[in-house]
């Protein structure tokens, strides 16, 4: 097999956690890691969907402690590195230390795209602990490529080995993704990554566009299992790359089998690009809001579509799931007032 052109990180066991309301079991983690590891996937991310420490009222409680899931992943992997995600403000450095002790070797530190400076403590700690540090700039569609580069430079200055363009809302067009990757590639010495969501059905296309701009790391989730309308499907990305003559280092047939036989039986609560999923991408709303919005819509007798559009208007950022209740309560009140007036 030729030398891979980029490094693939599979985030089924982190971003995919959103799609099943953070209910992965140890057994599922063991089977997914075994299949992806055997297929040659070099990095596998395992955490609560909102990163270490994400288990909460606001984001949903983990059914199994993420540290237990991490331990199973580390014990199962033979060649793959195990990565974690953490968002400063949600997770703390103690969480990172525990993950390191268990054996995680890649620390992905995520902030909203304009707030890179809150990652300094965590990126530095990751390096001190001998981990690979990845900066993860979320909702990167909200600012220009030049502004994104300024934030990426901050992460690089704290010691990040790679900085990702993260399309958390699945709102980027191919041109949006390419321009951001190209600007970061030109302005950084460290590596650059792309994390794509599929709300506009462009996740694979955006990743291929990023590869044409020389992106070094690409994220996928097997079967696309992930927040919102789902992620770039790992097995499709690998197949499309191989067809385009881009070596991935991953066995396409083995990863297809992993998708079909191991991940697909884990039934997501969502999984197709329905109207709400598409609306996230269209309105530029953080993907993990989807299930919470559907649940609140049901609870308060309002339309999930209206919640998502209002969240977009309010310019909420990743992590502000509490605003879903706020919006739902307000929509319910307005509907009651309209009824009383009518």
């Amino acid at each position: 097999m030729s030398e891979p052109r980029f490094r693939l990180t599979d985030s089924t066991l982190r971003d995919g956690s959103h799609a099943i309301a953070h209910r992965f079991t140890e057994d599922e983690v063991r089977r997914v890691v075994a299949a992806l590891d055997a297929a040659g996937v070099p990095v596998i991310e395992v955490s609560h969907g909102d990163g270490l420490g994400g288990s909460s009222f606001n984001y949903g409680f983990s059914a199994t402690d993420e540290m237990d899931l991490l331990r199973v992943a580390v014990e199962t992997a033979t060649q793959a590195k195990i990565a974690i995600l953490m968002l400063p403000g949600i997770g703390i450095r103690e969480d990172l230390r525990r993950a390191r002790e268990i054996g995680a070797s890649v620390a992905r530190i995520a902030t909203h795209c304009t707030e890179a400076d809150i990652s300094a403590q965590h990126i530095r700690l990751a390096k001190e602990l001998g981990m690979e540090a990845v900066g993860f700039l979320m909702m990167a569609h909200m600012i220009s490529p030049a502004e994104l580069l300024e934030q990426a430079k901050l992460m690089e200055s704290y010691g990040a080995d790679c900085v990702y363009v993260v399309d958390s809302a699945g709102a980027m067009t191919i041109d949006d993704a390419r321009r951001r990757v190209a600007t970061l590639k030109a302005g950084l010495s460290c590596e650059v990554g792309i994390h794509a969501h599929n709300n506009l059905s462009l996740a694979v296309a955006n990743s291929l566009g990023a590869l044409e701009e020389g992106v070094d790391q690409v994220d996928g989730c097997t079967t696309g299992l992930g927040a919102g309308a789902g992620n770039c499907p790992t097995e499709i990305l690998v197949a499309a790359c191989e067809r385009s003559g881009i070596p991935t280092g991953v066995d396409p047939l083995a990863v297809m089998d992993a998708a079909e036989e191991v991940v697909r039986p884990i039934k997501p609560i969502q999984g197709v690009i329905d109207r709400d999923g598409l609306l996230l991408g269209y309105a530029g709303v953080y993907g993990s809001f989807l299930l919470h919005s559907k649940r609140a819509a049901e609870r308060y007798g309002v339309d999930a579509k209206d919640i998502l559009l209002e969240l977009g208007r309010r310019k909420v950022v990743g992590g502000q799931e509490d605003m879903i209740i706020d919006v739902a309560v307000e929509l319910q009140r307005r509907a009651a007032e309209a009824q009383a007036a009518g």
């Binding site: 403000g89 909203h112 309010r314």
Partner: peptide
């Protein structure tokens, strides 16, 4: 458990606590 979020929206949002 406490969670802190920074929101860059312009005009700036009022402090919110849930």
């Amino acid at each position: 458990k406490a969670i802190m979020i920074l929101n860059p929206a312009e005009p700036p949002i009022l402090m919110r606590n849930t």
